[in-house]
Design a protein around this nucleic acid. Structure first.
Length: 646
RNA sequence: GCCAUUGUAGCUCAGAGGUAGAGCACUUCCUUGGUAAGGAAGAGGUCAUGGGUUCAAUUCCCAUCAAUGGCUCCA
């Protein structure tokens, strides 16, 4: 008998050699039906693999990442099996799972290629293979046997992968007529997969190396229920509708012109309204939290970046320096704001009592992003960071961290991003040599970050070895309305710049000390944040932020004067809007303004003018009745209040 | 930067080796209309740019530029 410890701490005894499936069966038939993989002492296994020793286990369903992983991994094998059945001679690279689904890198037989026209037949074959409910069999073999198998098969990619594996046992997984090199885990049989579909094709280099052969990457997705696939496909459709590039054009927020240059957004008036309002709001919040606003130039002397170390690291991949005609000096478009802020800090002497010094700027920076990387507003060459640097003493790091976390959480909550994760990146404990700064300071900072995060109620994941060379960091990843993740905010500890720029303050001991610098951004960049906000809200911005809160629609020209009067009155209540006085019928005016996602439309005709009222329409809902102007104004301001409270 | 696909009016897109089309938007006129598209007329294009093939290229070929989807990168 062996002792199995369940996640709730309870212990059950089973025969030696019990499988995950049988354990699930002994708990409940329902669980047995849904269980996909099992974690045994921290390692994820197939549920058909016998357990021979005492173990702590966790059973995984499709709802868990580990369950999904097995599910999609097997799906990738099905994809390969289907492709091999339809295109014999296809060679296979790797077929891993990804955040949403899986892919397989393949090389089509000589002279053949895969196109979208082939999707239908492959999809059909995949479904057929699933319905056959073939058993997935795990087999341990020696390296020689594995090499022999794939040599016979003529799959040089698999051979390459195997040759790099350590000697010893290699695992193969087979289902139906397909056998693949794989460490698993997998589903017990293909019948769990009720819906499976190819999503797209792309080229990808073998092992991500551009000097090597380009393979065809086939992306797919699968689910245990047909309905889930339906929902997933609908989500993709919805995401397309919310694409910020599309909405940005429709709502006239921003524009790109190849004549200005790729990756450089032109902010149109309405987009500028939106962005200005965001900046003004955040500025007010920063001032409440004792930040000093600064402004710095868009270029900086090359020496500045030589001192900071960025020139050496990124110089050749940046926009190249601008030369002055007379003095022969070189200036760079600033790729970040920190060195400028450091120079502001250095402009005077500090006592320990002066710290922390919190300096903030909406600073526009320029980075030479690779051509193929540019994407709408989310990846551009010119962008404005909502940047701040806090210069503080070592004993202040934790409190400063906490107050930045508080601000970030406040900002996300205010803007309707209720779901976000935090991720802490620490040093690689096995290789401390690639980091600068003293061990003592690193330990203090890493501890301070973790304590600060926990004290603020965050449950951060920890990534070892992901820290920047100059310090540990905390990143915020927000989830939007469609469940997609966006990395926005970041807080980083930096020992590098204070050292390189020889920053100092006078301590109580009358000695010079080096301050610690915290870098942080909340939105990340205005460009990227506006893009995320557009996709999160589908262009229906919060009332306080939206460029026009209300548009007045006179029934005919006769009521234009009344509309002007109403608009003036609304302005007294800080409500902004405009009049649609086009020579169009009311139905047309409603339609056009609805499409512009104007939150409230006021229909103004004879009835309204006589009673001094407005007839109110809410975006997406329609007519919500008559109100006096004062009632409407209060209503709007209440709504704004509620936006912030929720 | 690499690979693939795409580039036709302000926008969305059709089209063909013989010199260009639709809808919306725009301008003017008619209409003054009560809760998601009123009517008519008009204007608007070096068919991304530069080469080549051809009697003839916007269409075929090559290069460049840009966009899109991936890959690699991201202070």
């Amino acid at each position: 008998m062996i002792r199995i410890t369940l996640p709730d701490g309870s212990v059950r005894e089973y025969e030696k050699g019990i499988t995950g499936y049988s354990i699930a069966e002994s708990i409940s038939p329902r669980l047995a039906k849904e269980v996909l993989s099992i974690t045994v002492n921290g390692e994820v296994w197939d549920i058909t693999r016998p357990i021979d020793n005492d173990a702590k286990i966790v059973l995984h369903k499709f709802e868990d990442e580990e369950g999904q992983h097995a599910f999609w991994h097997t799906s990738a094998h099905i994809l390969a099996e289907a492709i091999e059945a339809i295109f014999p001679g296809t060679k296979f690279g790797i077929g891993p799972t990804i955040e949403n689904g899986f892919y397989y890198d393949i090389e089509m037989p000589e002279g053949q290629s895969l196109s979208e026209k082939d999707f239908a037949v492959i999809n059909k074959k995949m479904l057929e293979l699933c319905q056959q409910n073939n058993e997935v069999v795990r087999k341990d073999i020696s390296k020689e046997e594995a090499l022999a198998y794939f040599t016979t098969k003529g799959d040089e990619y698999k051979l390459e992968l195997i040759s790099e594996l350590e000697d010893g046992t290699i695992t193969l997984y087979s289902q139906g007529n397909f056998t693949d090199l794989c460490k698993g885990p997998h589903l017990p049989s293909t019948g769990h997969i009720k819906a499976i579909q190819i999503l797209s094709l792309a080229g990808a280099y073998w092992r991500g190396d551009e000097t090597r052969k380009q393979l065809t990457r086939v992306y797919g997705i699968s689910f245990p229920k047909q309905k889930m696939l339906q929902e997933y496909l609908e989500m993709i459709e919805e995401a397309k509708k919310r694409d910020h590039r599309k909405i940005g054009k429709e709502l006239e927020l921003f524009h790109f012109s190849p004549k200005v240059g790729m990756g450089m957004a032109l902010w149109l008036p309405r987009g500028t309204e939106l962005r200005d309002r965001l900046e003004a709001w955040l500025t007010a919040e920063l001032k409440k939290r004792n930040h000093e606003m600064v402004k710095t130039p868009h270029i900086g002397h090359v020496d500045l970046y030589k001192t900071s170390g960025h020139y050496e690291k990124y110089g050749k991949d940046s926009f190249q320096p601008i030369q002055t005609p007379a003095e022969g000096e070189a200036f760079m478009l600033k790729p970040m704001n920190c060195p400028h802020h450091v120079e502001i800090f250095k402009a005077k002497q500090y006592s320990y009592r002066d710290l922390p010094y919190r300096m903030a700027e909406f600073g526009t920076v320029y980075r030479y992003e690779q051509h193929g990387e540019l994407h709408g507003l989310t990846r551009v060459r010119s962008f404005t960071q909502d940047d701040a640097h806090v210069f503080c003493r070592p004993d202040q790091v934790k409190d400063e961290f906490k107050s930045i976390i508080e601000l970030i959480m406040f900002v996300y909550k205010s803007l309707g991003f209720k779901d976000y994760k935090a991720q802490i990146s620490l040093r690689d404990p096995d290789d401390k040599t690639k980091y600068i700064g003293t061990d003592e300071n690193w330990e203090k900072a890493e501890q301070a970050i973790q304590e600060a995060a926990h004290e603020m109620g965050l449950k951060p994941t920890i990534e070892l070895g992901e820290a920047a060379f100059y310090g540990p960091k905390l990143d915020f990843i927000v989830k939007d309305a469609l469940g997609r993740n966006w990395q926005l905010g970041t807080i980083q500890v930096d020992y590098n710049l204070p050292e390189r720029f020889e920053l100092e303050y006078k301590g109580a001991d009358n000695l010079s000390h080096q301050p610690i610098m915290l870098h942080r951004a909340i939105f990340g960049s205005m460009e990227r944040f506006v893009a995320v906000l557009i996709e999160h809200t589908a262009g229906k911005f919060p009332l306080w932020l939206t460029p026009d809160q209300v548009v007045l629609l006179p029934i005919s020209e006769k009521f234009n004067d009344y509309a002007k009067k109403v608009l003036e009155l609304l302005k007294n209540y800080d409500i902004r809007g405009k009049i649609d006085d086009r020579n169009e019928k009311i139905g047309r005016k409603i339609r056009d303004n609805e499409l512009q996602r104007i939150p409230y439309l006021l229909v103004l005709g004879e009835k309204e003018e006589e009673s001094g009222n407005v007839s109110v329409r809410k975006q997406g809902e329609g007519d919500i009745g008559n109100m006096s102007i004062e009632e409407f104004a209060n209503f709007i301001n209440d709504q704004i209040q509620k936006d912030f409270e929720k």
